[in-house]
């Protein structure tokens, strides 16, 4: 469905380099990385807001920048910022911007507003940040998109709505025809719903893997410091020495064996992100 090939974008003080990944139909991809790593820039490129220096963005075999109208018609967006027109009601906003979409369905919009507890005749400026994002979400779902691009929306949602959000997103991809690209640094959600994880650090692609492969590629190892040190340096991504034990994220393979006195477990997405970033900070080079 969505394919990025060697996408590079340079700014004065930042560069997004050679980003390549595939998001197939029917799957949820989590886009992770620190603040400033380039997640939003990458989403802006996919949504056609930024051009690219090199590379291509393809959506359903269409070049996202050359055929932007067709592509944008099929992309719903929720961005963690002020969008739409604040001084008018949700209904007026929906009619104003919904007009540009081929298949905007006002009844679906009404349905989601009701479901999310939003009053359609109330002005957007009177809503809280979380509610504004709910409105964006309702709007995004109302023009029958094939791909939802969600940029860190869940941080502003209350826990109850976060659950509903996860439920809707999961339902959205269930028919195998729709996909979701969710940028976040709240990785617990991704552990629950993501099928693919794409990790960007300082504008570089660390990996883009299906979640199981990613989790199988690393192990958390903990135990006495000297036991951890017996592991090959190339295998250790980063280790943290604690008072009683040392914890390390290590590369893992099918035939890797560990000392019996070490505790070995599958890492979470958060562990992988944290240790890789720390490893990069310490070593000053990417050892992904």
């Amino acid at each position: 469905m969505l394919h990025l090939e060697n996408v590079t974008k340079r700014f004065d003080s930042f560069q997004l380099s050679n980003i390549t990944f595939d998001l197939p139909k029917g799957y949820i991809m989590g886009l992770i990385g620190q603040n400033g790593s380039g997640k939003t820039t990458l989403l802006h490129i996919i949504m056609g807001l930024y051009s690219v220096q090199t590379g291509t963005v393809t959506f359903n075999e269409r070049n996202a920048h050359e055929q932007e109208k067709e592509v944008k018609n099929k992309i719903g967006f929720v961005l963690n910022e002020e969008l739409f027109t604040k001084g008018i009601s949700l209904e007026e906003n929906a009619r104003l911007y919904g007009n540009y979409y081929n298949s905007f369905d006002f009844e679906i919009f009404e349905h989601y507003c009701e479901r999310f507890g939003l009053q359609m005749n109330r002005k957007l400026k009177h809503y809280s940040k979380g509610e504004k994002l709910k409105f964006q979400f309702a709007f995004a779902l109302s023009h029958n998109p094939e791909l939802l691009i969600l940029d860190e929306p869940t941080e502003s949602f209350d826990p109850e709505f976060r659950e509903e959000f996860i439920q809707i997103v999961t339902e959205f991809v269930r028919d195998g025809e729709h996909s979701v690209l969710l940028a976040t640094h709240l990785t617990e959600e991704l552990d629950r719903i993501a099928d693919y994880i794409t990790f960007i650090h300082k504008g570089n692609l660390v990996f883009s893997l299906d979640k199981e492969t990613m989790l199988d590629s690393y192990r958390m190892v903990s135990g006495e410091n000297y036991k951890v040190n017996l592991l090959s340096k190339e295998q250790i991504i980063y280790k943290e020495k604690g008072t009683y034990a040392t914890k390390a994220l290590v590369k893992h393979g099918k035939y890797y064996h560990y000392d019996r006195e070490l505790m070995v477990s599958r890492p979470t997405t958060s562990d992988i992100m944290y240790y890789i970033i720390k490893g990069d900070e310490k070593n000053g080079r990417n050892r992904f």
């Binding site: 949504m47 807001l49 932007e68 109208k69 067709e70 592509v71 944008k72 018609n73 967006f77 969008l83 739409f84 027109t85 911007y97 540009y100 979409y101 081929n102």
Partner: peptide, 14 residues
Amino acid sequence: INKTMFLCPLEKEE
């Protein structure tokens, strides 16, 4: 053009 409109499906010519 505001950002929301940039996100809407419009060609450059439009």
